[in-house]
Each structure stands twice: as C-alpha cells, then as structure tokens.
Amino acid sequence: MDNTLFPFAAIVGQDDMKKALLLNIVDPGIGGALVRGEKGTAKSTAVRSLAQILPDRRRAAGCAFGCDPSRPDRACPACAEAISSGRAIQAEEARMRVVELPLSATEDRVAGTLDIEHVLKTGEKRFEPGVLAQANGNLLYVDEVNLLNDHIVDLLLDSAAMGVNYVEREGVSFAHPSRFVLVGTMNPEEGELRPQLLDRFGLSVDVKGDRGAERRMEVVRRRIAFDSDPEAYTEAWRAETDALRARVSAARGILPKVSAPDPVLRAIVAVTSGFGIDGHRADVTMMKAAKACAALDGRTEATREDVASVAALVLSHRMRRRPFEEEAFDREELERCLQSA
C-alpha cells in the first residue's frame, strides 16, 4: 500500500465526487468522470487515493496490455492469437491501477511508437506500448485535462470511443485494446473543455470548497494529522478503507445481476428529454450509473431513487450553458420529470 496517499475514506464531504468515482469503478462502462472545481478542493487527492480501494482484476500474465483472459473479443493481437490457437493464457490477479497521463506527454509516449532500440539491434520493426497500453483495464487520470494539447485529446477521444488504440505512425501499424476509466480534473477558471471531450465523460461533478467552519476545521485537522505521520494515519483509517474496498468489490460482483425495469428506464428517458439532452449517450450512461448505484447498495434492481441520485452527475455537463452564466442543476425540474414519467 502506498502510504503517501491520503486515505480516500478520510476525505471530508465531497459526496458527489466520491460517488462519481466509485460508480465508475463498479462499472467502468459508465465512461469515466470529470471533476471540475476550484483549486484546493481535494480533486487530485481523491482521484489518486482511489488506488487504495481499487479492486483486483484478472489479467493475462506478462501481457503488455494486461488483457482480460475472459474477454477474447477484447484481447491484444498476441493474446488473441494465443486464444485462437488454443494455448492457455496464464492469468493473474492484479490490482487496478491509477495511470497518470502527464500534460507534457508527447504523442508517441501516449499512443506508443516504434521501438527504436529493437530496430537498431535487429533491423525489425516492433511496437513499443505507450500510456494507452498501460491504461487498458485501469483508470487513466488526466490532471488539468482542459489544458491538454488538442492532438493528445484527439488520441484520447479515439481510444475512449472505441476501446481500441489504433497506431498508424512511424512505420508501425498496430492496434491494441485500450479500455480505461477516464478521470479528468480541471479548474474551469483556466478555460473550458472542448465539447467533444466533455461529452465523452460519463459523469461530471462540480466540487466547491466547503464553506462551513466546522467542516473546514475537520479538513485541516485531518490533513495535518496525515502530513505529520502518513503511515500511522493510513493505518488508523485501515478499517474504513478496507470496508470501502470490499463494498466496491462486492458491487462489481453483483452488477451483472442488477436489472433496470421498464418504469425505471422510462423515468430515465423522461429526465433526459425533459432536460433537452441530445443524443443517446446520456440515456445509456444514466441507466448504467443507476444500476451501479443499486449494486453499491447491495441491491439487484435499480430504482427511481437511484436515477434521482445519479441524474445530476450524468446531466450537468451535458446541459447547454449560457455564456458567462453558471447554470446550476435544477433539482426541482428533475423532480418534475420523474413525476411525469
């Protein structure tokens, strides 16, 4: 366990942000989370600390892309070959990781590139995997995602959309699976995100600094306690951390059994069309988020309450904003939509 990370369970408040992150771990198919907020609102801390509660997953041993052996349809060329020729793939349990994409990353490091050393030694071309390969099956974190270079954003969009990283550069032609939970944090003061990228995030949450003096003191108290002895502090929160991790793992286990009956689906559609959302990504995402929400509660049927509790996360970044106006998510409108369904 990495003791330099502030315990996720010890973060005060910020329930929406925590929920958005947890739902994505329960179902990576939700499509990631964007956390927007002012400086110093524990955005990066929360995302990095997720590492402590990430569950284990099965991956092919020795595979650079960490393929899931149970999903041959999502395997890299080498694993796919092995599977189709009937060779058994050695599987191992490994913990999901938080892979960071630094802002300064170059395109070749992100997408992967020609393995120069290999060429010089042998005269043969070989693909050298990049960040998108490491991210497969893991969580890909981009801090200050709104400042990311346009052409890197294009690469991310492409992979996030298809779950595959297609590399066509430097004489290498290669494709490998790249399915990840995309988590971005940003400070909107530094500029907004491109709409195309914005829509790719399944959930989004606006975090604000806590205004209550009581809670602020608690935040400071915990932070100081952590900084003075990270190890002891992490240990003190061990039970909570482990419990949360167990809860997430359990939720992942029951997720395939969770259903969303038609009335719930109808409520979802009523909400998205009530809020004037184009496209169907919001519908699918809300359905998945509601199911994940039920799974986190240990239930096998999503309810309208689940829909109500995830709606803001799904919709807030998909609503059209008026220029220079902050548009708050309208809870009453949500209630009206749910009533009408």
């Binding site: 395939p256 109808r266 169907h280 699918v284 359905m287």
Partner: peptide
C-alpha cells in the same frame, strides 16, 4: 444523425446501447 426519437425509441436505444457495451455477442 439526429432524427427526433420519441420516448419508446429512446428507451429501446438505451437498452440496445447498454447491451452492446456489456455483451455485444
């Protein structure tokens, strides 16, 4: 690509979309 789907359409699209993500086969 937009065509103004109604409620039933949207429900059906969401179902198929979710199924495709989970179990394309």
């Amino acid at each position: 690509s937009g065509w103004g789907p109604g409620e039933e359409d949207r429900m059906e699209i969401a179902k198929r979309g979710a199924l495709h993500r989970d179990d394309p086969a």
